[in-house]
Design a protein around this nucleic acid. Structure first.
Lengths: 194, 194
DNA sequence: CGAAAATTTGACATGACTCAACTGGAGTGG
DNA sequence: CCACTCCAGTTGAGTCATGTCAAATTTTCG
């Protein structure tokens, strides 16, 4: 099995492809290595690609005009990441993606995606389902931001992302929860000694 | 033109169908009239349908165990509405949908959707795009909940939904913004006399 | 080891919440 | 047609959660 065919095998675990299909798909992916701190996508850049995280951890965040960061999501192994709002419409990014743990990515362009969609139907279903999951998780996030105080949101976070939490800085979590690092610190303290 | 073919024409404005396709699609929709206050979908019910709003206004909201409501979204003319998280997986609703302005709906089941998807490809693209838009709007909402104070979120709301705002009660807007009616009242006062 | 980064702590300010009372308008029935 | 009620919205007082700013402490990493 060539290295490229390993890409398809890792990314689309639940789909069966013919050898030709696998070769075709593999030819569309690019293997990328990024290090902690590297910026994968910068706000205002044209978004042409999405990224599959084979290893490591990335995050997307919005940077406001005061220089404050708001983390939209984290992506660890087997997650897809991009500024999807911009990716769908091939517009400029409003989000930035950076690497918070050394990572290996497979990148693919929207054009390549469309080629694959139109030749290999199973892939569109795969992405539709990924999309539905992401949609559901955004919905839950909106509701929990509306309905729950910071302490509960933090508890939700560590139970939803047990694999991510130990890898990342507190200020990343704080910016995901929409609170300051000081508040998060106080919440953590309360949880230890109530 | 029969009444049923008008449904297809109204719902899928940008797709061309053969007469047979239109007839097939029309046969899958049901026309529903609901009045202000009616509940279209109740939390815990199995979600089998989604609804196209031909006229009027609906909302989806989450009801917490204290009886407090959190509005996830409003749907006016030409919007689709359901508890999508549950709809996608044919699970029980966590959201409730009620009617806040007398409405006419076209409802369609997930099974019918799948039949249409597999026979008339253009429809899947239509829904994928609707989905992408909804995804983008959820993303914006998360970021604006994180980054903006209530007053700005209110201003965003009235500029994003100028057609909805006059139709609905302040307490619906407050529950959408994640604040109390009292706070919204104070924000409105400030905006009039700063 | 030592510098820089991350986290914690303290004191204080503020935005939003709660609860309670009040205002104003839209029906409704006598 | 008025009095009554109901509902939405407003206002006030006090409280609480979270933010801000500054300083101290701990952790990370070259």
């Amino acid at each position: 099995m060539s290295k490229n065919s390993q890409i398809t095998a890792q990314v689309f675990t639940d789909i069966f492809f013919t050898a030709d299909e696998a070769t075709f798909i593999n030819s569309k992916f690019e293997h990328i290595i990024v290090k902690k701190g590297d910026v994968v996508l910068k706000a205002n850049d044209l978004v042409t690609h999405q990224y599959y995280v084979a290893e490591g951890c990335l995050r997307t965040f919005f940077l406001d005009h005061h220089g404050k960061e708001y983390t939209l999501q984290f992506a660890i192994q087997d997650w897809w990441i991009s500024d999807y709002t911009a990716f769908f419409e091939q517009k400029n990014a409003i989000l930035t993606i950076d690497c918070i743990q050394n990572a290996r990515l497979y990148s693919i362009s929207k054009d390549s995606m469309n080629e694959i969609y139109s030749t290999i139907p199973g892939v569109e279903t795969y992405f539709r389902k990924k999309m539905e999951k992401a949609f559901a998780s955004f919905q839950n996030r909106i509701l929990s931001n509306l309905a729950k105080p910071a302490k509960e949101r933090y508890l939700d976070f560590i139970s939803t992302y047990p694999n991510i939490e130990p890898q990342i800085k507190n200020y990343h979590i704080a910016s995901y929860l929409g609170i300051t690092t000081e508040s998060l610190s106080r919440i953590r303290k309360e949880l230890i000694t109530p």
